[in-house]
Structures are given as structure tokens and as C-alpha cells.
């Protein structure tokens, strides 16, 4: 079992690193005032910690900073475009699903029932139905294209 002196000695490196809680730091301080051996050892650790803090800082070159900034700005623009595409894609998908889901209720409403619609649907209703369906397909197609473009962009990133 370690005695108080050994326990404190174990804490000296962390004390110099400022990594002890208040209670531990106080114990170390109190012990070091009474123990010359630990005081000297603490001083060595503090010298080492000081030397670490004084190590010169390597600087990145201006060219590197300029290059990183340019690439980050490009990436930022790309990300903004990607987010806009995602929003548009979601809207288009929602729109196409709305059209798909409302087709049959509309047909029933306009033609007086499915069978009536199949038997004798007026020409202009056919025209509007075809246009309506085409719109839904176009929205879905545009959403798919946007999705493919985003997947391609992710692959090349």
C-alpha cells in the first residue's frame, strides 16, 4: 500500500500539467512545502511543462491558406446547391405523389364514377386527365434526375 508521500509523488506530473482537481492540487501543494524531495521533483515536472509550452509553433504557408480558403468556398457553394436541390426534390416528390393520389378521386368527381368514366368520358376530360398525369410524371422524373445528380456529386466528392 502506498504511503502519503508516494501517493503525492504520483500526482506531481499531473500537478505540473494543471490536471488535478482543487482538492488534489491543494494536497500536493501542502505536501511539497514540507517535503524537499517532492518540491524538487515538482520543479522538474514544471520545467518540462514550461518547455512544452514554449515549443515554437510551425506556421502553415500563405499558399496553403489561400488554397484551403478557395476550396472551402467552392465546397460551401456546392453544399448550398446540394441543399437547395434536396429541398426542390422533396417538393417535386410531394407534388407528384399528390397528383397520383388525387387522380382517382378527381376522375370519380368529374365523370360520375369509374364505370361511367370508362363508358363515356367526354373528350376534354381525357385531355385534362392526360395533362394532369403528365405533370405528375414530369415532377417525379425531375425529382429522380435531381436525386441522381446528387448521388453523382457525392461519389465524385
Amino acid at each position: 500500500m502506498k504511503n502519503g508521500h508516494e501517493t503525492i509523488r504520483e500526482l506531481l506530473a499531473l500537478a505540473a500539467a494543471g490536471a488535478l482537481d482543487d482538492q488534489e492540487a491543494r494536497r500536493v501543494e501542502e505536501h511539497a512545502t514540507a517535503c524537499a524531495e517532492c518540491a524538487a521533483e515538482l520543479e522538474r515536472w514544471q520545467s518540462l511543462a514550461g518547455a512544452l509550452r514554449r515549443v515554437p509553433t510551425p506556421q502553415p504557408s500563405r499558399e496553403l491558406i489561400a488554397r484551403v480558403r478557395a476550396q472551402a468556398e467552392w465546397k460551401l457553394a456546392q453544399e448550398a446547391e446540394r441543399r437547395r436541390d434536396t429541398r426542390v426534390m422533396a417538393l417535386l416528390l410531394m407534388f407528384s405523389w399528390t397528383i397520383l393520389l388525387t387522380t382517382w378521386p378527381l376522375v370519380r368527381l368529374m365523370g360520375g364514377g369509374v364505370w361511367a368514366w370508362l363508358d363515356a368520358m367526354p373528350g376534354h376530360v381525357w385531355f385534362w386527365l392526360a395533362g394532369y398525369t403528365l405533370l405528375g410524371w414530369l415532377a417525379a422524373g425531375a425529382a429522380v434526375l435531381l436525386g441522381l445528380r446528387e448521388r453523382g456529386a457525392r461519389r465524385t466528392a
Partner: peptide
């Protein structure tokens, strides 16, 4: 904390 202490000890040894 443990690794910081070990790191300091190793550094001191090397130095």
C-alpha cells in the same frame, strides 16, 4: 488523465 501522465513520463524518459 492517465494518458497525460504516461505521456509526460515517457517524454521525460526520452528527453
Amino acid at each position: 488523465k492517465t494518458r497525460l501522465k504516461r505521456g509526460l513520463e515517457r517524454l521525460r524518459e526520452r528527453l
